[in-house]
């Protein structure tokens, strides 16, 4: 059955026991993203140490409502990028985006970069669910841009 390929144990574990969940202070950037087709929502905060692209991601906190894929993705993402520099974290985000856009074809995801996020490879075969997996990542990019003062 394809279901197991999509709902990897790693994903279900993060869904049942999400990491870094809950909104925390301090933070420099916040973003609220919704998936208008299904109503999933995430509010995400970014706390940076330092300035510019060399700043370190000191904390990512979030409050989210949605399916197992979007919840697990927020958990995996925050765990993956906390402690990295903004630049490194953006690179992970780009790798994840490429994986999601692969539609399950011709892609050799870098496991060293993606770590647990590699478990989402199966999701990329379901176009309707890709947005679920990307919701938190998009909110993070947005919140980070705000924290860096790149957008209003």
């Amino acid at each position: 059955m394809q279901l197991e390929a999509m709902y990897q144990e790693v994903i279900l574990d993060h869904y049942r026991n999400p990491l870094h969940k809950g909104l925390r202070e301090p933070y420099e950037g916040e973003a609220h993203h919704v998936n208008p087709t299904c109503g999933d929502e995430v509010t995400l905060r970014v706390h940076l140490a330092g300035s510019g692209r060399d700043a370190r991601v000191a904390d990512v906190s979030y409050d989210a409502m949605g399916c197992s894929i979007s919840q697990a993705s927020a958990s995996v993402m925050s765990d993956l990028i906390i402690g990295k520099s903004v630049q490194e974290a953006m690179a992970v985000g780009d790798e994840f985006l490429a994986l999601m856009q692969s539609r399950g074809r011709d892609v050799q995801p870098d496991e060293d970069v993606l770590e647990d996020a590699i478990a989402f490879a199966g999701v990329s075969k379901y176009p309707a669910r890709i947005k679920c997996a990307l919701l938190a990542w998009m909110a993070w990019k947005d919140a980070t841009a705000r924290a860096l003062g790149e957008t209003s």
């Binding site: 394809q2 279901l3 299904c38 109503g39 399916c67 894929i69 379901y126 669910r129």
Partner: peptide, 28 residues
């Protein structure tokens, strides 16, 4: 179980339903 996940299992079984707010968000 989130409706998206219910729908995914149903879809795997060939049962095609709608999941989400069905263009009537205020009802949710």
């Amino acid at each position: 179980i989130h409706p998206h996940d219910v729908g995914q299992v149903l879809d795997e079984l060939g049962v095609e339903v709608r999941v989400g707010h069905h263009c009537a968000w205020p009802i949710c």
